[in-house]
Design a protein around this nucleic acid. Structure first.
Lengths: 116, 116
DNA sequence: GTAAGTACTATACCAGAGTATAGTGCTATA
DNA sequence: TATAGCACTATACTCTGGTATAGTACTTAC
């Protein structure tokens, strides 16, 4: 009934550590939605606020700061009348594309499964 | 300096929603580490507790319940002397492989970048 | 008889993620 | 004159994810 199982904690943890690092950077409810929105192109604060359902200004502002700190997003200020601020994905941010795509594909399958 | 930007909130949100669903299921610090450990094969409670650094029994127990509820993990009880319980990935859980791989790859690159 | 292993549960507690609401200083437009 | 838009910040509150610690019931091995 019970067969011996091979355990390789070393190999296991080697897989886990980088993923835990990644999780820390992408942690929370809003970072990925923000990044997805920015994959569609440059956006301003109010664009993001409008296009990400249910996010509050406070969270948007906070998470953008985090993303900027981690070099995933770049903030550019233009000194126009009322200041204009643009947010862009950095190349480093773009390197998350595969992750986002994989998650998106799985999420869609999951939605289908749930709907039934 | 500022060029008009095209916005397509519809398309944007269509990408975001499934990902938010996925995030909810994988949320928290421990679900992915647990799933990764289980990708290496069947494990028992104490195996997981040992192989996932710093996780507490309480969290492990709680997260395993969540994962079981979402059909990502299967729990099997054997009525041996002191009960033995085995946790296995379901096929559905295995469908997360791509996501985990993508995250793992990105995480490794990120580690390298940070180390410098 | 006592220690160790099995798979947990119970209790207590805290920090921080997230929400809600309002307000700032500036300006172009109605 | 007043309202709306811009990019936020401030304050206050809630809730839950996470930590820490201890204890359960059972049994085999020393």
């Amino acid at each position: 009934m019970k067969e011996p199982v091979v355990h390789d904690p070393q190999a296991c943890q080697k897989k886990m550590l980088p993923i835990q690092d990644a999780l820390e950077i992408l942690s929370g409810k809003w970072k990925l939605p923000i990044l997805i929105a920015l994959m569609f192109g440059v956006k301003r604060f109010s664009d993001l606020s409008r296009e990400i359902p249910r996010i509050t200004d406070r969270m948007l502002s906070k998470e953008l700061k985090d993303l900027e700190m981690n070099k995933l997003v770049k903030r550019t200020v233009y000194d126009t009348f009322p200041v204009t601020v643009e947010y862009t994905m950095t190349d480093y941010g773009k390197s998350l594309k595969k992750v986002i795509e994989a998650l998106g594909e799985w999420g869609e399958k999951h939605r289908e499964k749930i709907m039934k």
